[in-house]
Design a protein around this nucleic acid. Structure first.
Lengths: 187, 187
DNA sequence: GCCAAAAGCTAATCTCATTAGCCTGAGCTG
DNA sequence: CAGCTCAGGCTAATGAGATTAGCTTTTGGC
């Protein structure tokens, strides 16, 4: 039995990649095992099971999304920052639909759960965008939720093919950025 | 063997109700069979299988959501209409999270698929809201997608417990309605 | 070289979805 | 009223997937 040299991180990374390829619902332990070159039960030496796997994929995805948004925002402010953040976020979701789907409905088990930390980082990245608009203390949380709903809603609807009719989707997204920017500036 | 008197509609309705109670992922054929008082295989006399069941639940949900939004909007215009529609939509999703979840990622098989018709009705209801704002022809589709992303994103994030921190969620939703209203009026 | 733990594996179990094939009762026909 | 048909139930069987138990082998530290 040649050792493959797996570790939890490798399994999770492979699982995330596979989820992006075949869709989260079709990510099965057997398929993942085949992908990493072991028999199914061997996976349980590295992850606790499907739920644990999905949880770790979710944490990975949120961390990557936070990195992407962070990078995009760095050095920008105002509308530039907003547009860069929104595009980076949507780009990430479209490029990694499977791993992003793993984050939906996943609740951190505690405040030091890696999932919670990654989620916090993503949130902070968007908070930085708002800072450039000089939003009042009382409105920051609401504005954050609005931005998050917009980006999350748009991106998930698009990956689900939820926009049926013909108008160009990228154009709609740019329109939406402009809409949000104007609204925030008008506060 | 006492006949139970099932038909597809009854099975779908029970399935939708059960999905709301236990969550869509936990809706199993066995559980549904028990709920309607037959053995599992008997369900297949009424629906084609899990995928068909979910499809029908989705169509039911979209139709009900369209009804709810339609009713809410009737006789209102402008901000009143927008607020009523948004609240009705979110209310529906929060009250029926399971059946609404069934609609996500579900693509109509053709233009006369009941799913497509129900989706169209829901869309029309929101289009009616926009009419009151006198949005230009070129912007209607974008604005519609924006509203949909906002409502869908907010509602699904809320049902997934995606809003962690403490600020009141209903308050955020009202804030969001105001934000959208101001943006639309400023066009 | 020896030992313990880690990392594989096979075999077995359990839950579900789905299919095959049987049975019956309800309604219609003669 | 007897008999036919078929829709709607049922039991039994199959097959996918997740998971667990328990065995074996490699690997790293002494």
């Amino acid at each position: 039995m040649p050792r493959v040299g797996l570790d939890p991180a490798a399994v999770v990374a492979a699982g995330a990649a596979l989820a992006d390829e075949v869709g989260l619902p079709h990510l099965t332990m057997g398929l993942l095992a085949e992908r990493v070159g072991v028999r199914t039960p061997s996976l349980y030496k590295h992850v606790g099971g499907q739920e644990d796997l999905q949880r770790r994929i979710a944490a990975l995805a949120l961390g990557e999304a936070a990195d992407a948004v962070d990078d995009a925002v760095r050095g920008r402010a105002g509308r530039d920052a907003l547009a860069a953040a929104a595009r980076a976020f949507r780009g990430f979701v479209l490029e990694h639909p499977g791993r992003y789907a793993a984050t939906i409905g996943m609740e951190p088990s505690g405040p030091d759960d890696p999932l919670a930390l990654a989620g916090r980082r993503l949130l902070d990245a968007f908070t930085a965008v708002l800072r450039g608009y000089g939003i009042g203390e009382a409105d920051v949380d609401h504005a954050l939720r609005m931005l998050r709903s917009l980006c999350h809603g748009f991106a998930t609807l698009q990956t689900a093919n939820g926009f049926q009719w013909s108008t160009d989707i990228d154009e709609s997204f740019e329109w939406l950025i402009t809409f949000a920017d104007r609204g925030l500036r008008a506060m």
